[in-house]
Structures are given as structure tokens and as C-alpha cells.
Design a protein around this nucleic acid. Structure first.
Ligand SMILES: [Zn+2]
Ligand SMILES: [Zn+2]
Ligand SMILES: [Zn+2]
Ligand SMILES: [Zn+2]
Lengths: 131, 131
DNA sequence: GAGCTTGTTGCGAATCGTTCCCATCAAGGT
DNA sequence: ACCTTGATGGGAACGATTCGCAACAAGCTC
């Protein structure tokens, strides 16, 4: 039979902290938070579970401008993000315009299995007024 | 007086190899190529020059799906890319639709200083037929 | 509950890309 | 030829992520 997934308190912990975090967080951040509250979870486990959750569609991931992998709890379908460079606040964005554009352009060039990376970074209102 | 930029054969070498490469290349790849043809250039220098060229608008950079920084010689204005996951072939893409969308969405959410990351990855015709 | 199978975990070692440090080198102006 | 100072190389240092593996434990069977 196919490999069965097991439920561990570790995965639950990751899922939970990920869910209560607003905006995107890195594996390392999540790890720190967990260890700080006394958890004995391992770093590799955090990475493994984040990867799993992402794969399962329970989480969403993207690369920050400086190449770090960030994650966010998410259940709704495909969408993109607008992230504040300063405070990390995130807005989910539906962009059918872009989706269409992506597949059209891909097709026009004879490319298949198109994947796209579309993220917006900026400075939110609150952060701007602080400066 | 202000800091003056000097011209070195190293920068010229990087610029040259970058220019003759089709598609995006990583700093490490460029370094290997250069060393293989006998150059004594240092890895750090390759990184430094790629960064400079990028900053100067002579090169274009993006992150591959697995987080590596890739570079490509380029002189024309702002544009995006469609890259073959298999062979690395690249097509430059002008997407005013996306540009407009990006700034509009940013503004609608009260964000300023919007930057966007928009890249398409797929498999080109040639690579597809090989499989 | 005991026992077994096998997905999971924790931890340290190992990668990998990239940046730092710093003594030495050399481009460009005098 | 002579300085000033940006640039270089190379090895150490880094930060993020992955590996390897023995110990562990979730879920199933009896
Ligand atoms: Zn903000
Ligand atoms: Zn999309
Ligand atoms: Zn191809
Ligand atoms: Zn653009």
C-alpha cells in the first residue's frame, strides 16, 4: 500500500505557529519561536514539515528579496502577495490578469508546464508614516 | 572627490563571458568557465563584478526556482523573462500589462516603492521533444 | 496491551551559495 | 616614476537548507 502520513505533535506545532503568525515567516524564525516556548522540536523537522505543508497546499511559500524561503499558512486557492518590506505585513492578491498573461505568453513561445513567480514588495502605509 | 571606478581585465572578462552566454548563468558557472580557460580570476571578484554590472544596468539578475542568483547580459530597459527549466534558454518579455497591474495593486493597498518579481519558468519546445 | 512496521524525529555533519577580511596588487592621475 | 586608493584573490566565515542515521513512536494487527 501507499505510504501513510502520520500525525505528530511536531507537525501540529508548526501548523499552529504558522497559522497564528501574520505575514510570512522563515523556517528559522518559526524554529526560534517554538524553542523559546520550550518546545524540543528540531530545526530539520521544522523544515521538513513546512515543506510538507506547502506541498499539501496548507501553506504558501515564496522567496524574500534576499533569497530566504518564507512560509505562510494558507488554504485558499492560487494567489499572489503584496508584502511590506519593512514590517512584513502581507496582502493576498488575486490576479487573473497575470494568470492569463502568464499562460498566454508561455504558449506563444512554445513553452509548456509554465510556472510563475509573481510577488510585489513595497512599504505599507503605517511603515511609511513612521519614517 | 567621489570614488572613481577603475577598469580591470577581470571586469572585462566577466562582462565578455556574460555577454556570450545565452540565457542566465550563475556566478559559479561563470567562474568555472573563466578558470577553465586559464584565467586566474577569483570567485569573489566574479561575484563583485556581477553585482556591479547588475547595479549599473548592464546585467539583469533573478533567482532561480531553487534560490540561486542568476545573471544575464542586458542593456535594454525593464523587462521580464521566460526561462526553460531544462536548458536555460531565455526569452525576454515586455509586459506592460503586468507593470500596470503591479503599480495599480500596490497603490490600491496604500503601498509605496513597489518592486516586483515576475518570472516565468517552463519547458521549451526543443527540450520537450527530447523527452 | 504487546508487537511490528515504517514514517518521523533530533542532532550534528555536510553542502552550497555568498560574503568578509585583509594583505597585496595595480589603475589612473600628478 | 610615484602616490592614492579602488580592486583583487583566496581562504575563512556565514547563513540557509539538506543529509545521514540511530533512536523514536504513530497506527495497525492480533
Ligand atoms: Zn509595513
Ligand atoms: Zn499566479
Ligand atoms: Zn529548453
Ligand atoms: Zn516589470
Amino acid at each position: 500500500m501507499s505510504t501513510t502520513k502520520r500525525n505528530t505533535w511536531q507537525r501540529e506545532a508548526v501548523r499552529a505557529r504558522l497559522a497564528e503568525a501574520q505575514g510570512f515567516v522563515s523556517a528559522q524564525q518559526l524554529y526560534s519561536v517554538l524553542r523559546d516556548e520550550g518546545s524540543t522540536i528540531g530545526l530539520a523537522t521544522v523544515y521538513r514539515n513546512l515543506a510538507q505543508l506547502t506541498e499539501a497546499g496548507e501553506a504558501d511559500s515564496l522567496q524574500s528579496l534576499d533569497g530566504e524561503n518564507l512560509f505562510r499558512s494558507c488554504s485558499t486557492g492560487h494567489h499572489h502577495h503584496l508584502i511590506c518590506r519593512s514590517c512584513g505585513e502581507t496582502r493576498e492578491i488575486k490576479a487573473s490578469v497575470v494568470e492569463e498573461w502568464a499562460s498566454r505568453v508561455g504558449a506563444e513561445h512554445g513553452f509548456s508546464e509554465i510556472e510563475h513567480v509573481v510577488d510585489l514588495f513595497g512599504v505599507c502605509e503605517r511603515c511609511r508614516s513612521k519614517a
